[in-house]
Design a protein around this nucleic acid. Structure first.
Length: 559
RNA sequence: UGGGCUGUCGCCAAGCGGUAAGGCAAUAGACUUUGACUCUAUUAUACGCAUGUUCGAAUCAUGCCAGCCCAGCCA
């Protein structure tokens, strides 16, 4: 029996299937991910990578990472390193197939000479402002450049001089000769080469002229033998130009790659625009590209997301042609699912209230054995100290139980995880009348592991021995709860680490064992979610979410 | 008001002329050494709207409405 879900093919893969059926390419399927090294990868990048990567794998093809570095003003080695590192971490290792657009500068230049010789490009002297005006508008056609009909010889000479550095940036530009009246703005004699006075992070000062994305991209794809160039939907309007370039160069590329598009994704509460992410980082709104509030790969990683959870998320959200806004709860669900049987579960009391077990001898203590993961016995057990004074979660007690409440209230008996049944016999209150101490009794016969069956209990609570519990040294910065959102304003993890307000108290034995834990080890809080060790976070530091939100709003209105 | 793309449950998303998959979220119940997890059940007479074609439409046609993208010598 076939697994229907596994067999599902998305619309992009269907296109590839058709090409395979029609023998459209006499080379293996080849896809690519072409980031410009001007920022760090984020969840949206992963989505694009996954589409290309998975398609290549599904059709036994090849997948390339190509650093699309045709603008020396914006790119840097720092970004290429992070991109490669993040891809590997995320499970999309390009292996040996790492390429650089800048390595093709000479090849592209040579082809451009041919283009000019064929009368399909011309050097234009219009200033940027003049060019903009002559382009027309969305509703009005543009007008031809007065330089449009220069002779091939003059164009060749001028283009060579551009390359030789005889002109200043902005003075001249090479344009494709297409159609100034096209309803598609991209086809109105687009600039394809510009003069830039900058040192390229990789090519150094070898070049004075750099090809524009629209021109370089199809050539780069073709050089690498890409068959299917899948990119996001805003490039749909650029496809005619992509095809025009390859058609003009058909003498070189007889089986040109084809560009196809997919819709972009957003995640609720997250900023997934490279531009805003840069701004947040460089203007100091966050403490770096790996700030856990950012949906960058490094941020997600630091926040505790696993490679596995990200993969199931990407698989789960599917692909379509329109923009989607995926609920963050889907990502969180994937993480919980991934960690469920893998991560040890420890107890933490976030909002403690003391309970005194009045019939437990004062000063006495014992160790009880608690399983590390109820679903996975392989994770073993640990010994936890138990004593007369216990800390419970404040919300686990109600003086007057509301209907349906089955945890602790006067007269009710519950189990303490891994320890005993306790029965609430009274409550002490502070001046304001708020419960300050719960009085209980325990039954020695009900100790965990003794298989006591006389009575049943309707609830089990997590707890800590007051004398042994210690305020969390682990930063709970990266704690994950279903109600949280990345970058949203309703995140309140800071108060979990602020000693001046609420302090998280956790499983003392686990705390001790954390000494040997690695930074990316995950733990589960029973009933509270997940956390990872975060060595970099500064306890107590409060980050201003409102400023981020305000910035986001400004941007929306501004554009 | 030029061109392009998109519109299926709160959110993703299958479907490609034969009578609405699945996941997330939600709700109800069962189970339970945590109300978690798991399990079960429920949730679109309905596919942006309107006409039309057809025995039959979410799937085809026409019109309309809504959203997104495009006027960088950015990618």
């Amino acid at each position: 029996m076939e697994n229907k879900a596994e067999e599902t093919v998305n619309f992009l893969e269907r296109i590839i299937e058709d090409d395979l059926l029609q023998n459209a390419y006499h080379r293996p399927v080849c896809t690519r991910f072409p980031p410009e090294p001007n920022g760090y990868l984020h969840i949206g990048s992963l989505y694009a990578i996954n589409i290309n990567y998975s398609a290549a794998r599904k059709f036994a093809g090849k997948f390339n990472l190509r650093l699309d570095d045709t603008n020396p003003l914006k790119e840097d080695m720092e970004y290429v390193n992070s991109i490669i590192e993040d891809m590997k971490w995320a499970g999309f290792d390009p292996g040996e197939n790492i390429f650089y657009g800048s390595d093709y500068f000479q090849k592209i230049y040579d082809l451009t000479i041919r283009l000019i010789e064929n009368g399909q490009a011309f050097v234009c002297d219009l200033t940027p402002e003049e060019l903009r005006l002559s382009r027309g508008s969305l509703t009005a056609p543009g007008v031809d450049s007065p330089y449009r009909n220069r002779s091939v010889e003059e164009n060749l000479d001028l283009f060579r001089k551009m390359k030789e550095g005889e002109f200043l940036p902005g003075q001249k530009v090479l344009r494709a000769k297409i159609d100034m009246a096209s309803p598609n703005m991209n086809m109105r004699d687009p600039a394809i080469y510009r003069i830039l006075d900058a040192t390229h992070y990789r090519a150094g000062n070898e070049w004075r002229i750099y090809p524009m994305y629209d021109y370089a991209h199809p050539i780069q794809d073709a050089i690498e033998g890409i068959t299917h160039s899948m990119c996001s939907i805003e490039f749909k309007d650029h496809r005619p130009l992509y095809e025009w370039v390859l058609n003009a160069l058909s003498f070189e590329f007889p089986e040109p790659p084809k560009q196809r598009e997919f819709g972009r994704i957003n995640i609720t509460g997250a900023i997934t625009s490279k531009r805003y992410l840069r701004q947040l980082v460089y203007e100091g709104y966050v403490d770096g590209w790996d700030d856990p509030r950012l949906p960058t790969v490094k941020g997600l990683r630091r926040r505790g997301y696993t490679t596995g959870s990200i993969h199931s998320f990407l698989k789960g959200i599917g692909i379509s042609r329109d923009m989607s806004t995926v609920d963050i709860s889907m990502l969180e669900s994937c993480l919980r699912d991934d960690l469920k049987a893998k991560a040890p579960a420890v107890m933490a009391v976030l909002d403690p209230i003391e309970a005194v077990i009045t019939n437990y001898p004062e000063g006495e203590e014992e160790l009880v054995e608690v399983e590390n993961n109820a679903e996975n016995p392989e994770l073993g057990t640990r010994m936890l100290p138990f004593s007369r004074n216990i800390l419970l979660e404040r919300e686990d007690f109600m003086e007057v139980p509301e209907k349906g409440f089955r945890r602790l209230y006067i007269g009710n008996e519950v189990r303490l995880k891994g320890a005993y049944f306790i029965k609430c016999v009274g409550v002490e209150k502070d001046e304001e009348g708020k419960p300050s101490k719960i009085l209980c009794t325990y039954d020695p016969l009900t100790k965990s592991g003794l298989n006591f069956t006389e009575r049943k209990v309707k609830a089990t609570l997590h707890w800590l021995s007051k004398g042994h519990a210690i305020p969390s040294k682990v930063n709970l910065y990266s704690r994950l709860l279903a109600s949280e959102s990345i970058g949203g304003e309703d995140v309140n993890w800071s108060d979990l680490v602020d000693p001046a307000s609420k302090v998280s108290l956790q499983d003392a034995v686990v705390e001790e064992s954390l000494a040997g834990a690695k930074p990316e080890d995950r733990f589960q809080f029973i009933r509270h979610g997940y956390f990872v060790l975060d060595m970099k976070a500064k306890p107590g530091e409060r980050l201003d979410f409102n400023r981020i939100a305000a910035l986001k709003d400004t941007k929306k209105k501004g554009s």
